[in-house]
Amino acid sequence: MATTLSGPLPGVHTPPTRTRRERGALGSAAKVAVMVVAAFLTLGPVVWTLFTALTPLEAGTGERSFGLGAFADVFVQVDMWLLVWNSALVTGLCAAGQMITAAMAGYVFAKMEFRGKGLLFGLVLATMMVPMQVTIVPVFLLIRGMGLADTLLALIIPAIPTAFGTFLMRQYFLGLPHELGEAAALDGAGPFRTFFSIFAPLAAPGLAIVGILAFNYHWNEFFRPLIMLISEQNFTVPLGLVTLQGNLGTGSVATVLAGVVLSMIPALVVFILGNKPLREGLTAGSNK
């Protein structure tokens, strides 16, 4: 999958030829130099984080030495495995739930005719305009009323229905020819089989976008866990790390940063394997 990183973005194949005569090689070099500085400023803090986590201060001497001590220390200071497990559970179930419900609803909005379709789809889209911070108080009260306060389900259940995912999957199914369904019907497939064996597999790339965006969002989210979770045994990784930093103060920088590095690994894997769907998904809302 390394190709996802090395291929050029669609349409940006070659630069316009206009600058060739005026600027020449010197202008290009200056531009590249500016971009090298920008890339340094962008990646610098990440590299510094990795470097500092790998060179913790020695307790007695105050010297920095290379080693994995800080990484071992994170697991001593905080139940890192539990944090990762909680985050994985929330992220995995949110992503799976969003993929399933968005595929189903998107399919119906794209391929089925029924009364009230336009109105219902409009309502689904309208919910995208409402910022989460506005609904969080009533959602918290609802969750509390359902007896789910301070559980991981408080983060999972409200996050499964997804207006954006439904919109994205509808667009995806609209792009698949209607004739596929008719052909399947002629072959005797019922509507459920038509969906599961014909359309759903073809929509896999769209589903990947929904899943990757859900992963990226829920693995990193901080606001909802901060509100919904009270007990440390339910904390997710970002909440656990911020709490750890609060407990340790500024004494063990390397330990906290080791935790940050660990928390970046899954995001990095997704960034490398799913670069293209991630880019497409992030910018999808702006095209239509």
Binding site: N220, E221, V242, V270
Partner: peptide
């Protein structure tokens, strides 16, 4: 792709 909370810690 990073967590805003972790980035802020750094």
């Amino acid at each position: 792709i990073l967590s805003a909370a972790s980035v802020s810690l750094v």
